[in-house]
Design a protein around this nucleic acid. Structure first.
Lengths: 346, 346
DNA sequence: TTGTAAGCGTTATCAG
DNA sequence: CTGATAACGCTTACAA
């Protein structure tokens, strides 16, 4: 492996000082046209690129934003990333991503990696395990050390940092209201246990929507699973059992996988979607789009979320150090995407 | 924002020299039990963490592997990442990811970011645009500068570096043979234009499978699209038109999206899957698993691929510098996952 | 047992 | 116009 070209090497080769080279390359007026030309030509020829590590050390800035997310398969996270990248690019920041795979230790590890020099701050969504463990020391430590942090989607209230959320409650209402509007009367929900914030809030939205439509909430129509991004066989069986023989005409689910699985069992029971049972899912992704029938979803506008998160972070990064700490929580609206799994509004 | 704790600060606070602190923290025998204890206690109390940037600069090593991929939505890429991370962890390397979003400029940008200090080497799959443009200067430059590179999946032969591939041709054969075995005689393929290597190779496998079964290749049963990860309306229309009224009993597609879209049009034409038309898709992902009917796929073993890529890279990184350059191309086997979209083998 | 100094690659300041 | 020097945070000979 060759050694990378450095200022020092160029200086030696051209028999000038390192600082001359540095200045020439940065087009300093101090340097004579002649030398500047010479140095630049040489640098270009041998493809000199400044060493970012050295720059970061010098500037105590990396101009890099770190993203830590539980799982990347999610179309949602991809869109968030895109949003972050857009905003980052506009402000001349780079973005690197690490995955926690929904694993606590990995999340901690990644945070340390990113917190110790590689990035100026980060944007993260908590792993499932972290939320279960209820252990956020890695977060508070990072924040204590002056790392700006923005949490999105899967957050925890107590941590003092900026937050970007979708309005889960409103989103769920949007979805359930659509079911109601299209004539559904007996609407079930497939959600998660309450320790997962999004599950809890979406369940709440579901209940509120029913109530304000004068429909009584029936506990038998609420299924709370312990799963979130993946369904094991047990969870599938629970969904199957839950749907079996129930007299329902609408299902609201808090994610795509739940929706698609429910749809499958509904069709297996020889009911048609949306005529017999309508379905609305939270989270708009590939699955919803390509499923037959395609699913009506509550879209989360991930890109916007990413943009907002990046904006908040960059704000913190570029603000004079002494300003009073204060944290904002931004809400991103959801919207309904109508597809084939619900009836047309009359 | 507080300033991060450094050796210097600790040294000042404890009134010792920086090197004493450094040594104490690294448990050097040079330092007296006493001072060591004192320093370590202090460091722990204030949660000292060494600055990775400084370490990288010092060691001229980051112990970080970069991954550059076109698009992360793909379940396949997620599994590859997981494989890379496993292997990396075993060898004490970190992993950071950047996305090219199938965009040439972004790929170049990301490479520069990663090549200029942030990582010791990288693993990448080319963006669609890069392959179209046929411009690989960013790659050769990085390699010239001594950055070890491993390409996987979407590669280009001419670049001198390690490569990890799945055997696309064999994989396609596997899939098509399965269709043949289950009784299909008129098998169509939905693939990409030939400039995308995987499309080309998979088409080849398809043809070979047919030929060796004594079935004549019918050009009318081959659809080459210009799309790869996403389908625009035009591509969808082409699929629809392609399938319409064609007398086929099997469809092989080179990715999930093509398969799912084809399935949809087939069902719309009131044919049943797999009785009337069987489907096999390349790439095993969420879509195939959750679609109704679930799709038989050729699985790519992404995790293994990731592991292999990381292994090759780490090998290069830890090898004494002077060794002769030589590049290996590893092939990862595919396997068939039978689901509902094909008939049982008799 | 502790401290000094050089060096990793840069840039900024100040002197020549 | 050019160059020496210090500094970013850390490690490691080498002195003391």
């Amino acid at each position: 492996m060759k050694r990378k070209l450095t200022l020092k090497l160029i200086a030696k080769e051209l028999d000038v000082s390192i600082s001359t080279v540095s200045k020439a390359l940065r087009d300093s007026a101090e340097i004579s046209e002649d030398t500047r030309q010479k140095i630049k030509a040489f640098a270009k020829l041998y493809n000199y690129k400044p060493n970012n590590i050295a720059l970061s050390l010098k500037n105590r800035k990396t101009r890099t934003i770190g993203i830590i997310i539980p799982q990347i398969v999610h179309h949602f996270f991809t869109t968030v990333i895109r949003g972050v990248e857009q905003m980052a690019r506009e402000h001349n920041y780079n973005v690197i991503i690490t995955l926690s795979n929904n694993d606590f230790d990995k999340e901690v590890l990644n945070m340390e990696l990113l917190a110790n020099g590689s990035t100026d701050g980060f944007i993260l969504s908590l792993s499932k395990e972290t939320m279960q463990k209820d252990d956020f020391r890695h977060l508070t430590e990072a924040i204590d050390q002056g790392m700006p942090v923005v949490m999105f989607d899967r957050i925890v209230d107590e941590i003092p940092c900026d937050k970007v959320l979708i309005d889960d409650r409103e989103g769920a209402k949007l979805g359930v209201n659509h079911l109601i509007k299209t004539g559904c009367k007996k609407i079930a929900i497939i959600t998660t246990e309450d320790y997962i914030t999004i599950g809890k809030l979406r369940t709440k939205g579901y209940m509120e929507a029913l109530e304000s439509a004068g429909i009584e909430v029936d506990k038998d129509l609420i299924l709370k699973l312990d799963a979130i991004d993946e369904l094991n066989d047990k969870a599938k069986a629970r969904i199957k059992h839950f749907l079996k023989g129930k007299d329902i005409d609408g299902v609201f689910t808090i994610n795509e996988i739940f929706a698609v699985t429910a749809a499958k069992y509904i069709m297996e029971a020889d009911k048609t979607i949306p005529e017999d049972v309508s379905i609305v899912s939270f989270s708009d992704g590939e699955l919803s789009q390509h499923f037959v029938p395609s699913l009506t979803t509550v879209s989360q506008h991930g890109e916007e979320m990413g943009r907002k998160a990046a904006e908040l972070l960059i704000n913190k990064l570029e603000r004079p150090e002494e300003e009073v700490e204060q944290y904002t929580t931004a809400y991103i609206d959801t919207s309904l995407i109508e597809r084939e799994s619900t009836k047309r509004v009359k």
